[in-house]
Design a protein around this nucleic acid. Structure first.
Length: 201
DNA sequence: GGGGGGATTCGG
DNA sequence: CGAATCCCCCCG
């Protein structure tokens, strides 16, 4: 029983939504994958968030309608994709860190540059954007309506009752206490999940 | 207008 | 472990 997720689902705090997004299907361009690892980011209260210093041109999507895609560009070559959470005017987002490839694996391999094992296709936030054809032009795409060809679908697979939890990855020392939060969540044992330290609940 | 740093990835 | 390779944003 596949169904699109509702606007209300996303209009809650990112840290609440994040573990519930595990096992949800992300529909990309000619390829789909099941979400197996995510991170939550709050807004102006979260020193690790792009929205920490308030609205800017880059993070505008984070302050807008929940359920839309926030895409940012980093390290001069990579894109990363987030799902906007929280009410309009309140910044929040869930970074999608890894997928289990479901469909369109040949398309993913072509985009990722040659023969790759399935676990090499979507096991990272920039890898999965490349595999699904997500780029800067997709910032603001509405995942609830599916306009723009990107969507989130509940196919009936429930989120795990006992997700792995860990610290968020790649944060600089300047974020201080925000780096200690266990705001990264994963499907236990999935091979596409990163091997950074986990605290299993 | 300048400069530091980045929610990463891949190869040596 | 460091290069790749831009863009964003804060500060002066």
């Amino acid at each position: 029983m596949a169904r699109l997720l509702t606007r209300e689902f996303f209009a809650r705090e990112a840290v609440i939504v994040a573990p519930e997004l595990l096992n949800v299907v992300l529909v990309g361009r000619g390829a789909t994958g099941r979400i197996v690892e995510v991170e939550a980011y709050a807004g102006e209260s979260d020193a690790a968030s792009h929205a920490f210093r308030g609205p800017t041109a880059r993070n505008a999507t984070m302050f807008g309608l929940p359920g839309r895609l926030y895409v940012y560009f980093t390290y001069g070559m990579h894109h990363c994709a987030n799902v906007v959470c929280g009410k309009v005017g309140v910044a929040g987002a869930v970074l999608v860190r890894a997928l289990a490839p479901l469909d369109g694996l040949e398309t993913m391999r072509r985009r990722r540059g040659g023969a790759k094992a399935p676990r090499e296709l979507c096991s990272g936030p920039a890898k999965l954007c490349q595999a699904l054809g997500i780029a800067g032009v997709d910032d603001g795409a509405d995942l609830v309506t599916g306009e723009g060809g990107l969507a989130l679908v509940d196919d009936g697979t429930p989120a795990p009752d006992d997700p792995w939890c860990g610290r968020r990855v790649g944060l600089s020392a300047r974020v201080g206490g925000a780096g200690a939060l266990l705001w990264r969540f994963a499907v236990p044992g999935d091979p596409n999940v990163s091997r950074h330290a986990w605290r299993v609940e």
